[in-house]
Design a binder for these strands. Structure first.
Lengths: 346, 346
DNA sequence: TCCTTCGACTGGAACGATCCAAGCCGGACG
DNA sequence: CGTCCGGCTTGGATCGTTCCAGTCGAAGGA
């Protein structure tokens, strides 16, 4: 009398369970469990017998049961925000892929969730309370990050992609890319190319990231004894702002090169140059930030600071497995250095 | 003697369980379960009492336990492939966000996994056998799709984003965007603008999607009694190919407009025009496909066929809940019509 | 010989939810 | 007044795994 739910052929055959494997291998359930999780506990001959049974039945542990027993889901929650329309930002795509890939190697999967963009906490609470994820990767830390503080009080494991700007010595784990170093790299590259009047177009002053990137430009200029006065502009992150800011700068300070806080702004500069009949890369150099697809396909190719997102993912997963390990390792803070993708615009 | 694992304050307090709620409300576990899943079975006063207890304790059902019992995870698996470097393709980002959003409304979460790009089946099997996901969304159907056939034999619920080109009457559920209609829309738009010699740059003949889009161009041309001979080119999906193909076409057929199978190819056309000192939109019109970020920020704005990805996501989730419902609804096939995002290039 | 130690394996309990069959209770009916 | 019925409620079993406390037999020491 097999139960009415298992009629092979009609209903998809139920996947084999530990008990099925145990029966086939002539051992107990626990032994099969050990064969899977602690193979060194078994005598070699028993181990191979069990492994054969596993292979023959195509057994794979049931996630739900394992999760229930171990109180962990081996899932990492990531709030997925799409790139804004009309900008060149495309970090998420590359980052998410790297994260998925790296997580897999560490035995984790990535669970996406969404939330009201106006409420940074939306979504986190439910997943946590229903024990749906083991940890979070928090990405949108650009304006303070209430998420981090909230997760800390909830004692929920998480790693932030982005520094806690509002509280630099916050103890939680984070991984970030040194935007200042990136812009310094870009500026130095331009100086080496012979440029002296290098302008900066960045974001409004309340953007920590923007100010950080700007500091890289300042640092490089100062290091080479070059003046920065009158050469900086701070605007919204749109193509249009980049265009008008560069037009003003060209009129007032006649720079021979631009370093921008984003590819979006850099595109604005390219627009201005085109309007004025000046060739990017020959007449005026332009460097963007993020190495977006736009930078790669636009003429003549936009030199851009490229974040090492693959390595960011590796470090994040490393930090996560530290937090979730037994015993847990203390949270780490990692700052990575970006590279410069050289193209025709410089 | 509370067990050693629950020392409030030191260890994060364990989330409340069904039993905790039951005790507080003075009812049995089953009653609480009913309050959550079948509230209409309870007497109104009992219901409110239970709901108060739930609210006070902040109870949320444990996912693992629920999954184990109901043999479903409320997770949808999606194999996440990143956009290729050097192209303008950016469909995934927008689509994934829409999917996450729509799934949430239907009570599902999206689980990302990755796989060897050379092995289209990698990843699916493990998730299925370990009952980690309830269903899949299959996206990369551009060259036949072994995934679909394989999932069918496994009787695994899935919805494809993309038609089964190699087997048009395959019974599985799919949602797709009518690329032919999109290119017809684009071509007709150009014809209305007065263009007569409109060239096509598409993908190699073995691309079903490419041939479908091309058919839209042909259809519009024929409908207006315009010749197509010598006006079509089929190449790889790279900016470089688009550039050289358009150069050849300009030399040999002198078209006044281009319709391209992708924004990447359209960017190639823009490059050629710029090299030759001809202004896109004024001298020669260009239309791309996908409404990528590139199309949005490049000068003078690239007119492009925009896939209704938000609606695709809605239809996919609709189809999924059909497949997973009780009783399941038969698989649906849905073809959506894209729109045209008008910009300066046409 | 007997006791201890140790490695290999076993059976029962538990994780926290849902399904199932049975129980309780008040009202209607004979 | 007893019985039946239907609406609510209940306790027990169950999903498939891992944890825990043991059992068993062989080896080693006194």
């Amino acid at each position: 009398m097999s139960g009415p739910t298992r009629i092979p052929g009609r209903v998809p055959a139920a996947p084999p369970t530990l008990a099925d494997v145990a029966e086939r291998a002539g051992v107990s359930r626990q032994t099969v469990s050990n064969a899977v999780n602690n193979p060194e506990l078994l005598r070699p001959d028993t181990l191979t017998r069990v492994q054969e049974a596993i292979a023959e039945l195509g057994y794979l542990p049931n996630r739900a049961a394992r999760n229930l027993r171990t109180r962990s889901s081996h899932l990492i929650g990531l709030r997925f925000s799409p790139a804004q329309e009309g900008t060149a930002n495309a970090t998420m795509d590359r980052f998410v892929h790297s994260l998925v890939e790296t997580s897999r190697e560490a035995g984790y999967h990535v669970l996406l969730f969404s939330g009201d963009p106006r409420d940074p906490l939306a979504g986190y609470d439910d997943l946590l309370r229903s024990t749906a994820v083991d940890a979070f990767v928090v990405t949108d830390t650009y304006l303070g990050n209430p998420q981090a503080r909230w997760l800390e009080t909830r004692r929920a494991p998480f790693v932030a992609f982005g520094r806690p700007w509002d509280k630099p010595d916050a103890p939680h784990a984070w991984v970030d890319v040194d935007g200042a170093a990136g812009c310094e790299l870009a500026t130095t590259h331009l100086i080496e190319r012979g440029h002296r009047r290098i302008a900066w177009i960045g974001w409004r002053k309340d953007s920590w990231i923007g100010e950080d990137r700007r500091a890289g430009w300042t640092r490089a200029m100062r290091a080479h004894g070059l003046a920065t006065t009158g050469l900086a502009s701070r605007v919204e992150d749109t193509v249009h702002s980049g265009r008008s800011a560069s037009a003003v700068l060209l009129d007032e300070a006649d720079p021979t090169a631009f370093v921008c806080a984003s590819d979006t702004l850099a595109m604005g500069v390219l627009h201005t140059l085109e309007e004025r009949g000046r060739t990017p890369g020959r007449d005026v150099a332009v460097v963007g930030f993020d190495d977006s697809q736009v930078a790669q396909v636009v003429r003549p190719g936009l030199t851009s600071v490229r974040q090492p997102l693959e390595q960011v993912a590796v470090e994040i997963v490393e930090a996560l497995s530290g937090l979730l390990g037994h015993p847990p390792r203390p949270p780490r803070q990692v700052l990575l250095t970006p590279t410069l993708a050289l193209r025709g615009s410089s």
